Simulated scan of single mutants.
Amino acid sequence: MTPPTARTWARRGHTPVIRVRGRSHRRISIAALACYKHGERTRLIYRPRRHVDHREGGRRSFTWTDYRDLLIDAHQQLGAPIVLVWDNLNVHKDRRMRQFIDTHDWISCYFLPAYAPDLNPVEGIWSLLRRSSQINTAFTDPDHLMRTLRHGLRQIQYRSSLVDGCLAETNLTLATPRPQPQ
């Protein structure tokens, strides 16, 4: 992962150059759920995953079973039904994922419009993560990156006002007003 850069410097008249070693073929993915409920503290449930080198037959991203397991864990932690508001990632729309959602009455699923990251509160979480724990960091190995990700996500998780701010930034509300009969 190429680290984001917040500040750099160079002599006047010279363009700053930041050298980054070649890219690794290892890949780390994170899935997260921002959980909101009226009258309760906002929760962030996440799962980072380190993938095997894809050239050795490994996958480069989460599978539908990884998302399924995350939903089951979230349901157990929250002890309540889940209303998913998902973006249009192909794994979210996978036939097997749809079957799983349709066979469980504790999940309702809605999809955001295409190309609408500004309506997805989790995109704000990724922005906070990149701007806080990853800024100006050159990771020495995948374990260092994984530790830093977990630490950064834990910091966001413990400050529920940050997760609330990500929802506020979308201008979405938790409950929509019911149409009044005319």
Rank of each mutant, 00 (worst) to 15 (best):
I45Q: 01
I45S: 02
I45A: 01
Y46N: 00
R47E: 12
P48I: 00
P48K: 01
P48E: 00
P48G: 09
R49P: 01
R49F: 06
R50E: 13
H51L: 06
H51I: 00
V52K: 14
V52E: 13
D53C: 13
D53A: 15
D53V: 13
H54P: 05
H54Y: 10
R55W: 02
R55P: 00
R55M: 11
E56C: 13
E56Q: 10
E56G: 08
E56A: 14
G57F: 12
G58E: 01
G58Q: 08
G58R: 13
R59K: 15
R59M: 05
R59P: 02
R59N: 05
R60P: 02
R60G: 09
R60D: 05
R60E: 05
R60V: 04
S61V: 07
S61N: 14
S61G: 09
S61W: 15
F62V: 03
F62Y: 14
T63Y: 03
W64M: 08
W64V: 14
W64I: 11
T65Y: 11
D66T: 08
D66Y: 05
R68L: 07
R68F: 06
R68N: 05
D69V: 08
D69R: 09
D69P: 00
D69A: 09
D69F: 01
L70Y: 13
L71A: 04
I72W: 06
I72L: 15
I72M: 13
I72Q: 12
I72H: 10
D73G: 10
D73P: 05
D73T: 13
D73L: 12
A74P: 11
A74Y: 02
A74C: 08
A74K: 01
H75T: 07
H75I: 07
H75R: 05
Q76R: 11
Q76K: 12
Q77Y: 05
L78T: 02
L78Y: 01
L78K: 01
G79T: 12
G79A: 14
G79Q: 10
A80F: 09
A80W: 03
A80C: 09
P81I: 04
I82H: 03
I82D: 06
V83Q: 10
L84A: 06
L84M: 10
L84E: 02
L84P: 02
V85G: 08
V85W: 05
W86M: 12
W86K: 07
W86C: 15
W86I: 03
W86H: 10
D87G: 04
D87K: 03
N88E: 04
N88C: 11
N88G: 14
N88Q: 15
L89G: 06
N90H: 13
N90I: 04
V91C: 01
V91L: 06
V91Y: 00
V91K: 00
H92D: 07
H92L: 09
K93W: 04
D94C: 11
D94V: 03
D94N: 15
R95N: 12
R95F: 14
R96Q: 14
M97V: 03
M97K: 00
M97Y: 02
